[in-house]
Design a protein around this nucleic acid. Structure first.
Lengths: 340, 340
DNA sequence: CCAAATTTGATGTACGTAAATCAAAAAATC
DNA sequence: GATTTTTTGATTTACGTACATCAAATTTGG
């Protein structure tokens, strides 16, 4: 049987009340006695029963998710996963709420964080806009004891406890290698469709992509990046226009707005053998993968990200360790054969 | 606040004892009253607090992992993950033990299951040897109320509650497409190295592989399968021998024993441009991926499989739902750029 | 309508921890 | 040595559920 508070009280020769004072760092214990108790805790290998403690305290974990107000499939999916987590809240003792902030707006995010830091949430998960002022507030809050994890998009050089998202440089590198290998000996130009170069994940994907392309596939030249603002209409226009260039042999779409990309490909490239790699598995990209319009999809699992963020925040709130391997968000590579 | 047993007792106009009798299906309740209580439970949306219940019952989850006594990297990794889970046992109320059985020996597995069915484990996870007699015992135990999940290797047509492993047909298909696309216009022969065609996962990988190859890459011919018995020495010999065939342009290694494969490749194929796809990420395959001896690795995450099996077994023991998406074991595709 | 059987209520204890109160003991101060 | 302060002990209640016991009420059978 696991030792209980009673056992350590007996072992240390003190009363239950004193053990409780030590365990919950309440005042009124001489340091000699405190050490006696701590010794007993170590010797018996006491670990408190979190479930029993939470029951006694009537504890819940108030968590806040801060999300950008972006209207794309991925953010919708992320929202849906958070709603699922809210449904599971009773069983997990969580109390989750979401706050929407304008996208790419550091000031708005800072304002929300400032507001939260006056409150009592025991954990914050945010899709971070990567700006120094955001980083500064986040770091201050971390130092004040707020568990903070970044979700999907990280904060450069921040003290945040954890990043629940994929390694976007690796994603870009992987895309480059897949594209390069799929094209084999073919030479030509590669069109890159991004959302905005102001977003960190997009910049990083591009960075990874261009570096592998330069190092390993010198026969492929990257054309100037098309910024589709994650908007299907804009993306459609840009890609349709770019496909006028007959030298293009491949496309890498590293952001959202793939509906527009797919439409443009179906209109303009029926007769051509383009190799296309896109990010994010949606109904549209899935269909395009199946009908060979797209050759591979790189994906991050929003459900995994949300569940991971919650697990990590709870663990940090309790001062517990996390299982690193479990919380690593993988870059999923989907070909038409391994779709879920 | 969540409703408690007290609330439903009050709402149904009965005593706590009666509510308890209904909740824990104890006898001595008229069906009229039982229905009154059940109505109150539904109306108030009562869900019992599992943590409190487990505390009151002093419940633990005795789980058994049945593993083949195979001496390869993957099984060692699986064992290590189970040991990690055992370390976490106190916090998770699990009580995990492992049993080793001879590999590919249905009778031995059946004997162990029979033995367990006389005992009290609340859940069994097993790397199944896919034989009708195993399936029969497993199904009987499922009907008797034992939660059973298959791990890594499934039981054809069984009633097991869950399979914690990858879709091996999809894995084979994915390998074929990767190999086909990487080879591009090249024509030639493909060597396939398996462990044993008696193992279901290997059969399935081969099945998926050959079907995609036949459908989509007619220029590539699959040579007769080399059965390396998951043994590096045997694999080395077979591959070294096969590489005498100058028509070989690609290799698919769908089992273990990759150390031998890699050695053979380094000895015999330095001057050739072979495309190689292998299963299972180990120190050896990882190094080979980095030095370009291998082009892609397909992997199943043993840690994820073990944690998933435990979550599912606990949920089944409690009659709870599982999060399907969370328990789906993904086929990881590693290129040298997205290694963990 | 009475006796027997069944159903229900009332109550208490337990699980392991948190948290509070009040009294008792020990230590520090003068 | 008396007084104040600090430290400790003893005890209780609570969290939400499980489970056991015994008495009281109700239903059923004859």
């Amino acid at each position: 049987m696991r030792p209980t508070v009673h056992d350590i009280a007996a072992a240390a020769g003190v009363s239950l009340a004193t053990v409780d004072r030590v365990l919950n760092q309440r005042p009124g214990v001489r340091s000699v006695t405190r050490e006696k108790v701590e010794a007993a805790i170590r010797e018996l290998g006491y670990i408190r029963d979190l479930a029993a403690a939470n029951l006694a305290k009537g504890r819940t974990y108030p968590l806040v998710f801060i999300l950008p107000a972006s209207d794309n499939s991925f953010m919708h999916g992320l929202n849906a996963e958070i709603r699922q987590a809210i449904v599971r809240s009773p069983a997990e003792r969580t109390d989750i709420r979401t706050i929407e902030v304008p996208a790419f707006d550091p000031a708005a995010l800072v304002a929300v964080l400032e507001e939260l830091s006056r409150g009592k949430p025991c954990g914050i998960a945010m899709v971070a806009t990567d700006a120094p002022e955001v980083c500064a507030v986040a770091d201050r809050m971390v130092r004040d004891g707020f568990p903070i994890v970044t979700l999907v998009s990280d904060l450069t050089g921040s003290l945040r406890h954890h990043y629940a998202g994929v390694d976007n440089i690796a994603a870009g590198r992987t895309a480059a290698r897949l594209l390069g290998r799929f094209l084999g000996p073919r030479k030509g130009e590669i069109a890159v469709l991004a959302g905005s170069m102001l977003v960190r994940d997009h910049r990083e994907r591009l960075e990874g992509f261009t570096s592998v392309m330069a190092e390993e596939f010198p026969g492929l030249a990257i054309l100037p990046v098309l910024e589709g603002r994650d908007d299907p209409e804009v993306a459609h226009m840009l890609v349709a226009d770019a496909l006028g260039n007959a030298g293009i042999v491949g496309v890498y779409s590293l952001g959202a707005g793939n509906r527009g990309l797919i439409r443009a490909l179906k209109e303009k490239a029926v007769d051509r053998t383009l190799t296309v790699i896109a990010h994010e598995l949606t109904v549209h990209t899935r269909a395009a993968l199946i009908d060979h319009t797209i050759d591979a999809i790189l994906n991050q699992d929003a459900g995994h990200e949300v569940r991971s963020a919650i697990r990590v925040l709870k663990a940090k709130a309790d001062g517990l360790a996390v299982i690193e391997a479990q919380e690593r968000i993988r870059l999923d590579i989907f070909l038409k054969d391994n779709l879920p």
